[in-house]
Write a protein that binds this DNA or RNA. Structure first.
Lengths: 329, 329
DNA sequence: TTAACAAGTGGAAACGTTTCAACTATAAAG
DNA sequence: CTTTATAGTTGAAACGTTTCCACTTGTTAA
């Protein structure tokens, strides 16, 4: 591979000049031409490693997600990737497999490869939170479990999302509605809180189905609900996978909305709008989340002094998309 | 950040010794201890950039896919990531948005960041093929369009996959079956060839629905088929998205399998096994594709002399998963 | 005509590693 | 007790950039 020195020799100029050219600093047109010519002739390409070594800047941002096949996460990454790219940054994505230790390791990998900043979509495991404590690198957390993060944080307004669903049920006359969620996950917890808040100060604990955010748990919970003694008049699922799981059970058991039960789901993405029955559903502003995450990160990267700033927690409103899966009672 | 020199100073040893320690070369136990202590004390972490600059090795492999939200691609990446990791390599993933120019740019990005090898899942656009011509870096292509690649290539046995579907229809008595595919995509083309081969030497061209591998085109084609004059007795879709699209139309139009028409789909992943009706479907061996891709790549990386070897094209068999969506006539 | 200045240029030093030739200490062999 | 082999250590050089200071032009003002 040709180096900057080869270009210098070939064009008869000094390495400093070549470097200026490469960094868009002023160079006489005459030399500009010579250099361009030599570069083409030799097929020179800048070695980003050497550059990063010297400048401590890589123009790469790292994105860490718990699961590369999680549709919500990958949609997010996709918008992050695109926006970052428009700002001159490239993105590299790693999968932590929802594993605490692996998440920490991947973060080090990225840091050691000199990423300029990190956007982390943390695994559910709350223990992971410590990991960030030591890092001093621009960092933005998305949908984190942490309550008082030292870092900028961005998430959907989960409490409000829960309220939107609860309110829709309530105003259609529902008073006993079950919710399928994951209480040890902060968004899951907040969605539940918001939901119940619409039904008054106290609520029947048997309406809360607490488990993992997984297809299986959605399925099982939905089944339990349909088979329960004092069956509620509606069900609210609080993430993509529980929604999928619940819908699957309903398909298998030939349960129709809203005839057999009313239903509000979560995350109008992936297969749901396509293969699922038309349902009323909460939509997260994925594109905006991505946009704001990049924006906050770039602020940190480009104004390092800002790090003394107090951390920002940014809430983005969700949207209730109305279909016909909630019956008026 | 502390450097190797700081560690040397702190431990009273030479930088060379620290380097040996870090690279697991023999060091006296006495020194080993001192070094370990200094490293912990200073919080030293190796700078991979500087290392890569010197060694030309990064132990990172780059993966390029056309769409980060494409479930087939991300499942592949996930297994690649895992297997590579077990071999001591990390993975970074980039999205080319199915865009030829962007694909080329991302490849350069990765090369310039010194990845040890590349696994590329090419965009449909055949023009992209040139891009690889110049590269001399270990490279494996997955499901490529190129017929006589200079690089190792790995893909499902698409012709055989088509035959499996065609044969299943044929032996259930079907003689006029439509196929939805993308002929300018090589896998799509081969799947069609294999499919038709089961029905004899010639075929009715009106049974071929040629478009993009997209949900929309799957939907439109399925609609056209159902509304056609001389309606075929079955339909074969040849990738995930066309399958989804076709299923969507069928849901909306209340078409049931196999009563209204027989159906075989492709790629038993994502939402299909969960939300879709139970259908006979072709399954690609995703895990094996990932495994073999990494294996071929590591061969190239670790035996550079091998590059004189003639390129390998590896075919992996698909599997026909049988449900009840094909009627016996 | 000269002084002052601006705009570019050249090349050595530095970034944090690994490598390698020279060196030291220890052990084994005679 | 010397010689020879062995194992480990040392620090300078190199990897390909950017940065910075000293330098050369060319231009303007007096």
């Amino acid at each position: 591979m040709p180096t900057i020195k080869d270009v210098a020799r070939d064009s008869g100029l000094g390495v400093g000049t070549i470097s200026r050219y490469l960094n868009n600093k002023p160079v006489t047109t005459e030399n500009r031409l010579k250099i361009a010519q030599s570069i083409k002739k030799l097929g020179y390409e800048r070695n980003e490693l050497a550059r990063g070594l010297k400048t401590n800047r890589s123009f790469v941002i790292g994105v860490l997600i718990p699961d590369l096949t999680d549709i919500f996460a990958t949609m997010l990454v996709q918008t992050i990737e695109q926006i970052a790219y428009n700002h001159g940054y490239n993105t590299i994505t790693c999968d932590s497999r929802g594993n605490d230790a692996l998440e920490r390791e991947k973060i080090r990998l990225l840091v050691r490869r000199d990423v300029d900043g990190l956007i982390v979509f943390p695994s559910n495991d709350s223990a992971a939170n410590e990991a960030y404590g030591k890092l001093d690198i621009p960092l933005v957390l998305i949908n984190t479990n942490i309550t008082d993060s030292l870092y900028d944080t961005i998430r959907s307004d989960d409490f409000e999302a829960g309220k939107q669903a609860g309110n829709n049920f309530y105003k259609h006359g529902h008073r006993r509605v079950a919710i399928i969620t994951q209480m040890r996950n902060r968004p899951g917890y907040l969605r539940a809180q918001g939901f119940f808040s619409e039904f008054g100060p106290s609520h029947d604990p048997s309406l809360l189905y607490d488990g993992e955010f997984s297809i299986d748990d959605g399925y099982t919970a939905m089944k339990a609900i349909m088979e329960s003694e004092n069956r509620p008049t509606g069900v609210f699922t609080t993430n993509y996978y529980t929604t999928i799981g619940a819908l699957r059970y309903c398909r298998e058991a030939h349960i129709e909305f809203p005839e057999d039960i009313s239903f509000i789901g979560f995350d109008n993405i992936g297969a749901i709008p396509i293969l699922g029955p038309p349902i009323t559903i909460i939509e997260q502003p994925i594109v905006d989340i991505g946009k704001q995450a990049v924006s906050l990160l770039l602020q940190q990267i480009e104004h390092p002094d800002i790090s003394t700033r107090t951390p920002i927690e940014m809430l983005l409103k969700t949207r209730l998309v109305i279909a016909e899966s909630v019956k008026t009672i």
